[in-house]
Write a protein that binds this DNA or RNA. Structure first.
Length: 288
DNA sequence: CTTGGGTCCTGTGCGC
DNA sequence: TGCGCACAGGACCCAA
């Protein structure tokens, strides 16, 4: 799944198309994603203006000129695609879209008043969309317990220290817990721990404050770099097919089992272990 | 409360 | 080339 940087990149790509624009047509090609769509999904969204498009953790939030906010989560395999109408300048009233792509997993299609078409694809359907009352959004179960945004000032070593206090699980598992910090996933947790040279497995409660400071620094750094890389991917995509979702990024440990560790290539070899059902990639030599 | 395991769904890539 | 299996970026639920 798209983690924080990918969701942020998607937000950045969709914002110019959606923010301030009216949804002229909304199509739900099936009644459910991970969960059933609300009965009034199409009815509420049709004619609504997206006033702002924001991100919280891995959620996309489209505020509407309605009581509700459209909440979207991409799950593991969700992505968006933007198709811009051509011939608008000629004002001929005839729009030519990119060819209708792989309709099999095109589950939701938004078309703006200007004729831009935003399609949500999700083969595995772990993603979901819902309409949530904007005034009480922060009380909703999806948001009430979320930890701080890792790029905000609310996230620091002091806060991590107290979250890790007395915990016997490794930091790998705990950093995936959205209640501790919101937006990290399997890839960026592995990357940040490698950069901070911290073992994914040793009890989190025993990690010293200075090492947590380093961890916070590296979490911020890896996310910031990935968002920047996503932004540049976005500019490339803008000229091609408008696909928004995953982007190619050179990871230091993720999916690099057997390759030399970037921290000390002559000594460390990246290993993979299954931890709490998820693959952990790490360097046994430098992550202690 | 903490922890580990199973679950949803489909596609891809690997070894044989 | 075909087949079966392991695995995939998330997050919820439940049992111990």
């Amino acid at each position: 799944m798209p983690e924080l940087p990918e969701v942020e990149t998607v937000r950045g790509g969709l914002a110019p198309v959606l923010e301030g624009h009216r949804l002229a047509r909304v199509e739900a090609r099936r009644p459910d994603l991970r969960f059933p769509l609300p009965e009034n999904f199409v009815q509420v969204l049709t004619g609504a203006i997206v006033t702002r498009l924001e991100r919280r953790a891995k959620y996309l939030l489209a505020a509407l000129d309605r009581e509700d906010t459209l909440v979207m989560h991409l799950g593991m395999s969700g992505r968006f695609e933007i198709a811009h109408p051509e011939g608008v300048a000629e004002r001929l009233g005839q729009f030519h879209y990119a060819p209708e792509p792989d309709a099999k997993h095109a589950h939701i299609v938004f078309t703006t008043e200007e004729g831009a078409r935003v399609t949500y694809y999700d083969p595995r359907r772990f993603g979901y969309m819902a309409l949530v009352n904007t005034a009480t959004l922060h009380l909703h179960p999806w948001f009430a317990g979320l930890g701080p945004e890792p790029l905000s000032d609310d996230f620091d070593a002091t806060r991590l220290k107290s979250a890790f206090k007395d915990r016997k699980q490794g930091p790998k598992t705990l950093l995936l817990d959205q209640r501790i910090v919101a937006g990290l996933g399997n890839i960026y947790v592995c990357e940040a721990l490698n950069r901070a040279r911290i073992s994914p497995f040793k009890p989190a409660g025993g990690i010293s404050k200075p090492r947590l400071e380093k961890l916070v620094t590296e979490i911020r750094a890896v996310l910031t770099e990935a968002i920047a890389a996503g932004g540049s991917t976005l500019r490339d995509f803008a000229q091609t097919d408008g696909a928004l979702g995953y982007f190619q990024h050179r990871f230091r440990v993720y999916d690099r089992e057997g390759e030399p560790c970037a921290n000390d290539p002559s000594v460390g070899v990246i290993a993979r272990k299954v931890q709490a059902g998820r693959s952990t990639f790490y360097c046994p030599a430098c992550q202690t």
